[in-house]
Design a protein around this nucleic acid. Structure first.
Lengths: 257, 257
DNA sequence: GGCAAAGTTTTCAATATTGAAACAACCACG
DNA sequence: CGTGGTTGTTTCAATATTGAAAACTTTGCC
């Protein structure tokens, strides 16, 4: 059950015998690197994955996949288990933590997520816009009910037809939130509100829980909670600008190779 | 502008032109990918960075750096500002969030970090072993004092000579924690304890605060707190093993050839 | 305007990467 | 105890990538 990754799909593929015309091809991108990144994504989409599985999904010959994965391993972007399978490496975790930490919104959102959980018992998420018309869940606070939605952090979803997509595109009604039942997965109800800031939508807060527990009245109550938190977060973002304004270069250079 | 950059650099031996030895080099890694990953790391090390600065730090010709960065951009691993400078992209944030989310330890550690902050007011961190003898800070809860240590999340440090390194290598005294004053940075005191689990050390909990506020007595009190939380976390990890317990083969996915 | 610095694009010989095939292991099964 | 299927690994001709230099654009500054 990946879910991730599937989105990419390489656009073309299949039988490549003909395609002489090509010409357009890739606008000066490096094939080697694209492939390595695709492999990295495949590795991240699973807890751990074997070489051949990974190669198959990325549609690469095993020998090439092996070489690239070994390179990724050499830089610490993937790790290798005792049994030879691959998993996300420490370097990736580091860069991810660093990139996430720079997203001020993650830090700012946490208290609100926590309050949402305290008020509802359901799992609360923060999502942002990803590449290619996708939404990405980048933070969550787990709910307190025994039956609850469990981690979607890192998951990416298409914007189309989902509540989170409508929120991120600011396509919502006057209530300030949008809810949907059983859309992506049966028995899951999503309640989402956009985090608006001067420049546009910075992200979205979501509450995800089992449909059976959320009747219409509860849904509206939760919706107001989510919308309130999203508004408050938007205000904070408006006050504290997102990033260091000046072109000032930071002198430090860390990262061990 | 420029100026800085070159000066700081790699901390060891001045002239690095040669690197003749080579031995390490060719062990079946692909240069292209290594370079792209180095560029990715450079981009992540800064809020945003220009092409030439990035190329200089990675010691690559501008034309190559541009090609590789564009490839990274094409996959969403880096983004480009309106002014052309590069920054971490959504895809990286996604994979990072996913990888971090999979590190069960992050989720488990959070309550403990929170308790540490509640008890001391200082910022609390979780660190794990990174590649190449480094430690990586992957989670934190910010302290409550007006003067406090602020985010090192994503930062990587050498193990050698640092308290966090000794904890991660389990080279600590009988007290169950190790503390150091003003080692890495003046006026910063670190109090660290290893999170031990059956297989070895899973990570380390750190409390970081200004030296002037932490006298010897306070230091020992905090040390006990940190050590207690680390022990408790280690126990939890021992009970709830990290996912995929067995050497379970990669599952199914039986696409016909 | 004119100068300097940075970003972008182009070219093509020199060099690095690729992948089909071959191998060695391993596993499951009859 | 093979037989057939799978996986991880290595090899080396065929192919893609590289980078110095030059040309061009843009931007900032005096």
């Amino acid at each position: 059950m990946t879910g991730l990754s599937a989105a990419i799909s390489t656009g073309e593929s299949g039988d490549m015998s003909g395609d002489v015309s090509g010409a357009i091809a890739s606008n000066s991108t490096t094939r080697t690197v694209d492939r390595a990144l695709a492999l990295l994504a495949e590795v991240c989409a699973e807890d751990s994955i074997s070489l051949s599985e990974c190669a198959r999904r990325a549609q690469l010959p095993a020998s090439t996949a092996l070489r690239l994965l070994r390179t990724l391993e050499g830089s610490g972007f993937v790790d290798r288990d005792y049994d030879g399978s691959f998993r996300a490496g420490a370097r990736l975790i580091q860069l991810g933590a660093s990139a996430l930490g720079r997203q001020g919104i993650v830090r700012l959102a946490e208290p609100g997520l926590r309050r949402m959980v305290a008020a509802t018992g359901e799992s609360a998420y923060l999502a942002i816009l990803g590449p290619n018309e996708t939404a990405i869940y980048i933070a969550m606070v787990e709910g307190t009910h025994a039956v609850r939605h469990t981690s979607w952090v890192g998951r990416s979803l298409p914007l189309a037809n989902l509540a989170v997509g409508r929120a991120l595109l600011d396509d919502i009604g006057p209530a300030g939130y949008v809810a949907e039942r059983d859309r992506l997965e049966p028995d899951v109800t999503a309640i989402v509100a956009p985090i608006r800031r001067p420049g546009g939508v910075a992200g979205a807060l979501s509450l995800l829980g089992p449909t059976y527990r959320i009747d219409d009245k509860t849904l509206h109550r939760y919706g107001d909670i989510v919308a309130d938190e999203a508004r408050s977060l938007g205000t904070q973002l408006g006050i504290a600008p997102p990033r260091s304004p000046g072109p000032a270069r930071t002198p430090r250079q860390e990262t061990g190779t």
